[in-house]
């Protein structure tokens, strides 16, 4: 198997259309990681993420002609397919996913994320990650996807807008609102029932 790292996504795509297996594998290896992480961060399920990753490239293979380079990047197109599959999957499994953001299990870990007194305390990296992951996973889907795309995948507003099929301004406002919700969630699990601004009382060392 000869990979083609020097080729752009669009070049690989064109070669793939011509039946070049190396181009297809190169494209897969280049993009599967991001697609997998996106699906995992959106769904919180490794099995869903694996299924979505496979489905994305099957769709690319079967409906290759749907991709129009003039409308956006191949990467954004793949993320768009992944998003559709994730949303479908979330719709199917909604009744099995806990969205209880006041879970007692998460209180301790979030408490480590936002500390009041001791700067480092017993904060650990894994607990921080788990706290943020919990908060992200419990966001409404339309907020979660902008956080995952823009903050976790460092996608530009324009690319995220293409993935989501909405205006750049919508992405921007959703991200602003989503981040405000995340801060509220993290603080709420730290101080259940508290309504004062986080900044007045807490310092964060994450």
């Amino acid at each position: 198997m000869t990979l083609l790292p020097a080729f752009s996504d669009d070049e690989l795509f064109r070669l793939m259309l011509g039946g070049d297996e190396n181009a297809f594998v190169s494209l897969y290896r280049r993009r599967q990681g991001g697609i997998y992480r996106f699906a995992l961060q959106m769904s919180g399920s490794e099995s869903v993420a694996e299924d979505v990753t496979q489905e994305v490239f099957i769709v690319l293979m079967n409906d290759a002609s749907r991709y129009d380079p003039e409308k956006g990047t191949l990467s954004a197109y793949l993320y768009g397919i992944a998003r559709n599959h994730v949303l479908r999957s979330l719709g199917r499994e909604r009744s099995f996913v806990s969205i209880d953001n006041s879970s007692e299990d998460s209180v301790g870990s979030v408490g480590e994320f936002v500390a009041h007194d001791d700067p480092l305390g017993d904060l650990t990296r894994n607990e921080t990650i788990e706290a943020v992951r919990q908060a992200v996973t419990t966001l409404p889907t339309h907020y979660r996807e902008v956080v995952v795309l823009c903050d976790l995948h460092e996608m530009s507003y324009a690319d995220a807008a293409q993935v989501l099929g909405c205006a750049v301004g919508t992405v921007r406002s959703r991200l602003h609102r989503a981040r405000a919700l995340l801060i509220e969630k993290l603080r709420a699990t730290e101080e259940p029932g508290a309504s004062s601004p986080l900044a007045d009382t807490a310092r964060c060392f994450a």
Binding site: R125, I129, A131, V132, D151, L186, C204
Partner: peptide
């Protein structure tokens, strides 16, 4: 929050 998200 950005730092936490980056870590995640």
């Amino acid at each position: 929050l950005s730092a936490g998200l980056g870590t995640m």
